[in-house]
Each structure stands twice: as structure tokens, then as C-alpha cells.
Design a protein around this nucleic acid. Structure first.
Length: 141
DNA sequence: AATGAGCGG
């Protein structure tokens, strides 16, 4: 009775009963939420929370220690010419991107904590290999 | 000019 109550409670909290809770009172945390931390892992990283004084070279220099950086891009405002506070770092290998994300996410660069996630596929401008169909790109459906 | 989550040049 108690165990069933706790199970129901846990299932209510987590919303979806996607975790198989064993009947022997073992509640395993596993990876509780967000099966994928941000998106499907790719070699391109979205770097948010950048200080407005960070340029592409310093950003590349900050991430070059994790692997070969192919492309570094910072979003600048066309009007004011200042940084929008986010950018992109593309690695040669996804493994290096993962390592860089795991190591630099939440860390401070020039006093500001970085928010790193994998970049979305949507690109306007730049070296892109555009597949014919965009709509068939859904993670879990 | 300032602004602080987001997805670009």
C-alpha cells in the first residue's frame, strides 16, 4: 500500500511514467528529465551568456583547447554593431564538442556564466549543407 | 542608450 502510494506520487510528479520503478522499493533516479540535455549532439555548439566584450577570436581561443575548432561565429547586432551575447562554435568532431560543452557550460568567461547547448539545424547564411526536407527532423516522435 | 534569455553574419 505504501509502496503503491509512493509510486503513484512519483508518477504524478514526473508527469509521464516513463521510468520503470521496480516493486522492490528501488527508485532509481537515472536521467530524470530531458533525455537529451539540449538537442541531438552535433559538432556545433550554441554559446549563450557571452559577455558583450567577447569577440570571435577570444571565443575560439577559449574552446580550441578541446579540439580543432572549424568555425566560430558571434551574433552581432547590425544596428549597433555590438555583440548580441551569443555565438556558435563548430568543432571538427562531435566528441570534442561534447567535451567542450560539458566542461565550459556554466563556467565563466570574462565574468559571465556561459550557457552552452547544441546548435539548432536552422542556419541562415554560412557554410551549410542543406538537406531537401527540413520537416522530417524530429527528435522523438 | 539600456538589455541578459536565446539560435547567427
Amino acid at each position: 500500500m505504501m509502496r503503491n502510494g509512493i509510486e503513484l506520487l512519483v508518477r504524478r510528479i514526473s508527469g509521464v511514467p516513463q521510468y520503470s520503478i521496480s516493486s522492490s522499493f528501488h527508485i532509481i533516479p537515472q536521467f530524470c528529465s530531458s533525455s537529451s540535455s539540449s538537442a541531438s549532439p552535433s559538432s556545433k555548439l550554441f554559446i549563450g551568456g557571452l559577455s558583450w566584450s567577447v569577440d570571435e577570436q577570444s571565443l575560439k581561443d577559449a574552446f580550441s583547447s578541446f579540439g580543432e575548432v572549424v568555425q566560430v561565429r558571434i551574433a552581432y547586432d547590425k544596428g549597433s554593431g555590438r555583440s548580441k551575447g551569443f555565438g556558435f562554435v563548430d568543432f571538427a568532431e562531435e566528441d570534442n564538442a561534447l567535451s567542450a560543452k560539458d566542461a565550459m557550460d556554466g563556467k565563466g568567461l570574462l565574468g559571465r556564466p556561459l550557457r552552452i547547448s547544441f546548435a539548432l539545424e536552422r542556419v541562415r547564411g554560412g557554410p551549410v549543407v542543406v538537406p531537401r526536407f527540413w520537416k522530417s527532423k524530429r527528435d522523438r516522435e
